[in-house]
Design a protein around this nucleic acid. Structure first.
Length: 260
DNA sequence: ATTGTGGCCTGCCCGC
DNA sequence: TGCGGGCAGGCCACAA
């Protein structure tokens, strides 16, 4: 699913539309527009503007418009970005590689055959005008050790829940978080504030390192733990049967032997 | 304020 | 072969 890594791929693809002028906006699924941005208000605020930047914070893709609002694009779990008819990511985990026209939720046109659109079968994504960027924590790809420590704070919430809380750390989803904790050798259910200084350092190395590694490998689903994330799966590191639990509201796989 | 829970969305896969 | 139930997780509303 789109986590920070996939959204960064989308962002790079979206850079192709920087400098282009929006000639038309299509929101065939009005429900997809969030926070009061109805279709007509959206169209009038956006049409005729030129895209001047494609930015990303966590899983949020931002398109800045000259003398206009910023568009915030979210992809949920099954949202794909398609630029000029080409999808930078063909297939997503938990979604098919198809892109039926009925799944088109939002599109910007820049003249004939030039467009940026979102295909999202499950409709878990959305488009927002002027999203509040201040509610997002530091991006996981570049978070500092001090920022991570502040995100964990003295919280009694499960470590995994804190890492996935976008207000604390932006960009981590279920698969990435499981992989990070697997590599760091930390139990997802540990109280976030109970880590030793050495464990916090290890976690920080693995947050930044895992994001970089899986980016290089090609996606959130390319982690070492991924193949074993099935019922009855065994730890690729030491062969122990993996624990399957709900932690932080999400299905969580972890190794009872080396994740402590 | 913090933490936990349930619901939304819908394609896909499994078992009958 | 068709059908129904369960499952996936990002995000949000709401409860305690």
């Amino acid at each position: 699913m789109p986590e920070l890594i996939e959204v960064e791929v989308y962002r790079r693809a979206a850079e192709a539309v920087v400098g282009r002028r929006i000639t038309d906006v299509a929101a065939p699924d009005a429900w997809y527009l969030r926070r009061g941005a109805d279709a007509s208000a959206n169209a009038s605020a956006v049409t005729g503007r030129t895209v001047v930047a494609a930015r990303r914070i966590g899983k949020l893709l931002l398109l800045d418009l000259r003398r206009g609002p910023t568009l915030g694009l979210r992809f949920g779990m099954t949202g794909r970005l398609i630029v000029d008819g080409a999808a930078p990511i063909e297939e997503l985990q938990y979604a098919s590689g198809r892109a039926l026209p009925a799944w088109d939720r939002f599109a910007l046109s820049f003249g004939p055959h030039r467009s940026l659109r979102i295909s999202d079968p499950r409709r878990l994504g959305g488009v927002e005008l002027e999203p509040d960027e201040s509610v997002l924590g530091p991006d996981a790809a570049s978070i500092t050790a001090a920022e991570l420590a502040a995100a964990l704070d003295a919280s009694t919430a499960p470590l995994k829940a804190r890492l996935m809380d976008q207000a604390r750390v932006a960009g981590l989803g279920n698969l990435l978080t499981d992989e990070i904790l697997y590599r760091a050798g930390l139990d997802p259910a540990r109280p976030a504030g109970a880590l030793s200084a050495a464990e916090r350092r290890r976690l920080h190395r693995n947050v930044v390192g895992t994001v970089a590694l899986l980016t290089e490998r090609g996606g959130s689903h390319t982690g070492d733990l991924q193949v074993a994330r099935v019922r009855g799966g065994r730890c690729p590191k030491d062969g122990a049967e993996l624990l399957r639990r709900t932690v932080g509201g999400r299905t969580t796989y972890s190794c009872p032997r080396h994740q402590r």
